[in-house]
């Protein structure tokens, strides 16, 4: 069994607890234990915090990494924003001695020191590269045959590509393979790789513009006959789920397109009950999807 410190971030535990619960439950099927990560905080939010002070952003991210270093555990996480903060902080501080010294001089004020002794992994990376689509397929009890999935990779999982390990940020395939391993169909849609619109602090700064981007994505997904949006980022998830309610209020456009985090979709395919996956806490009803599957 492989154990990771499970870095939760903010939006999964504090808005969509089903994402947190489903990650823990589905990982156990692959002998992966996501354990409590005591004292972790916000990653902190890369768009908002990095925009105010890059060094403070790195130091706050490094504080979280240092906590895990003390326990000798690699970090697993389920949010692209957290991934940007912690993967990049870990990568930059390991590879750039000048940056490391600068950040360690900040951390010295709280008696912490970045060692560079652990890895930061997105769970989708672990599922694809360590577990593999074949084993994911073997865990399926309820194949999602006939379900059209509009995949939303989210920006910070893949970009900037030179600071990542996934290769192409224009036409990636690994997430599609993991969705198809569940028996579902990953559909192509216009501007599939476009941003959800929420990042960079824009959702809280100019919500109308953030939603306008989400609206275009939702339209394109609907045009391609999507039954469900599947993401790997709780912030994209919030933007695409709650965003549909806001878009209806502000612009009058209605989609009623269910939104699931990959771990929730995986949970359904592994035969878990929708309630234990927290699907009833979503703004947009997941019932039409469940009717198609169950």
């Amino acid at each position: 069994m492989k154990e990771y410190n499970f870095f939760l971030g903010c939006i999964a535990p504090n808005r969509y607890p089903g994402i947190e619960a489903s990650a823990v439950k589905t990982s156990r099927k692959f002998d992966i234990e996501l354990r409590d990560f005591k004292g972790a905080s916000c990653c902190p939010a890369p768009g908002a915090f990095g925009s105010m002070d890059v060094n403070a952003w790195l130091a706050l991210g490094a504080r979280n990494i240092c906590l895990s270093e003390k326990e000798g555990k690699d970090i697993a996480l389920i949010c692209n924003g957290c991934y940007k903060s912690l993967f990049e902080a870990n990568h930059r501080l390991k590879s750039d001695p000048v940056m490391r010294e600068k950040v360690n001089s900040i951390l010295a004020n709280i008696d912490y020191e970045f060692q560079g002794s652990v890895e930061v992994r997105h769970l989708i990376d672990i599922l694809y590269n360590d577990v593999g689509p074949e084993k994911v397929k073997e865990s399926v009890e309820v194949p999602l045959t006939g379900v059209n999935v509009a995949i939303h990779y989210g920006c910070h999982l893949l970009k900037p590509k030179f600071d990542r390990t996934f290769g192409s940020s224009e036409r990636p395939r690994f997430f599609d393979e993991l969705v198809e391993a569940l028996g579902a169909t990953s559909i192509d849609y216009k501007e599939k790789m476009m941003c959800c619109g929420a990042g960079g602090g824009v959702r809280s700064y100019k919500m109308d513009l953030a939603l306008d981007i989400a609206n275009e994505k939702l339209y394109n997904m609907t045009q391609a006959n999507a039954d469900v949006i599947v993401d790997v980022c709780p912030f994209c998830h919030l933007q695409l789920d709650r965003g549909q309610v806001e878009i209806k209020e502000k612009f009058g456009d209605v989609y009623d397109l269910p939104v699931l985090h990959y771990n929730q979709l995986l949970g359904l395919a592994q035969g878990m009950n929708p309630d234990e996956l927290g699907l009833d806490a979503h703004e947009i009803s997941v019932e039409p999807l469940l009717a198609k599957i169950l």
Binding site: P17, E20, D36, S41, C42, A281
Partner: peptide, 28 residues
Amino acid sequence: GHGVPNNEANMKNRVKVGLPENPPTTHT
């Protein structure tokens, strides 16, 4: 410690999926 902190409605949703009211982060 959180940019998006917990709230009461969410605490109920956490309990419903078998999680403690607060995550084991700076909230606990």
